[in-house]
Design a protein around this nucleic acid. Structure first.
Lengths: 193, 193
DNA sequence: AAAAATAAACTAACCCGATTAGTTTATTCA
DNA sequence: TGAATAAACTAATCGGGTTAGTTTATTTTT
């Protein structure tokens, strides 16, 4: 009950677009309000301030990433699925480098919801490694290796630190190949099964 | 000539300590000023505002990292040096997670000085891979692979995204082993020489 | 149907931190 | 000794996030 106003989801959508366009650093409540035809104090009826709105975008971004990864790898298994997953991840970054930044914001350890959605993409990765029948613990090490490499790559790319003339696309191809070679080889050693 | 004041280096040092203690997000000019017994507007005699001061810390951080890497790997070569370099990098992050953040700030492509210092640690890495006699271009791909993995690992760690009960130390050990295995194996294939 | 309750918008004001303008003080050079 | 310069200071401005208090629209209750 009570007065009907703008929907919270629409506000999150507007914020998402602004962050994706302008980057997290240039993100301001005033811009969100303007885009929604409201005044910034009104946003406090929906969110507990700037950080809380960014958190909402962080959740949405993880959901978006998960959906893209799931869609792109549909029907694939093992190596094929894994390779496709890596490229889909990087595609997402290239299309959404703005909101990608939100995924690197430290997560409050009491934030159940946020923790839940960040695990969704990770579980997908775990799925593609599961055919290897690695020991549970070892497969966690592998997941971390993969996430580190892929995230690290796009993060360095964003930082423009790779810009010597050599093609980044090619670097990423090789990176994925080497991840696959390494993980599949390692998984064939008995000691990890 | 002119009045003698606080030295610019001392201010950078103070800023470095504050960022290392409180994190980049909580960094404020007022705190620097207080620590230096001056008022914040006076800082503008040394720096062109907050961002410029942070840039100075970014430069200092890269220098510090370089020195640590160099020291820790002194006298080592090839695999040994490479492994030590990886661990030294992570040590640096663990000791200096605050200022580490500055190294992820995007670099203005016209900023010669900053670009110069960020290359110093990278060149050290290149050195340890040089014994492999890879094609120039291929070795750049390898450097990117390594940097991505290592930086990505500490970045995910910072984001607390790895905190399921499995030991991160062990994950990092395995990561480094797999980097070494992969790169040394690959370098033995004729096509890369 | 009217009144009470509630939720979401609004305006006005506040606060904090970065920055700018203008002034004072200390040092150096002529 | 005085002119020039550099670095500090005080006072004021500006921009964004936030808070307080009010108004408006909708729903529920009598």
């Amino acid at each position: 009950m009570g007065r009907i106003g703008k929907s919270t989801d629409e506000i999150i959508e507007a914020a998402t677009q602004l962050i994706d366009q302008n980057g997290l650093n240039n993100f301001q409540l005033g811009d969100v309000a303007k885009k929604m035809n409201m005044k910034s104090p009104s946003l406090y009826n929906h969110f507990d301030g700037l950080k809380d709105l960014i958190r909402a975008v962080q959740i949405k971004t993880n959901e978006m990433l998960f959906e893209k990864l799931q869609l792109d790898t549909q029907g694939l298994e093992g190596k094929d699925g894994f390779r496709k997953l890596c490229f889909a991840y990087r595609d997402f970054y290239q299309e959404h480098s703005g909101i990608y930044e939100t995924m690197t914001i430290p997560i409050d350890k009491n934030d159940k919801e946020l923790k839940r959605v960040t695990l969704k993409p990770v579980r997908l990765l775990t799925k593609f490694l599961s055919t290897l029948n690695m020991r549970e613990e070892f497969s966690i090490h592998m997941v971390r290796f993969v996430r580190s490499s892929i995230h690290g790559f796009v993060d360095l790319e964003e930082q423009e630190n790779l810009v010597i003339q050599v093609d980044a696309e090619q670097s990423f191809n090789i990176l994925v190949d080497m991840l696959i070679d390494g993980i599949w080889r390692k998984s064939e050693l008995k000691c990890n099964k």
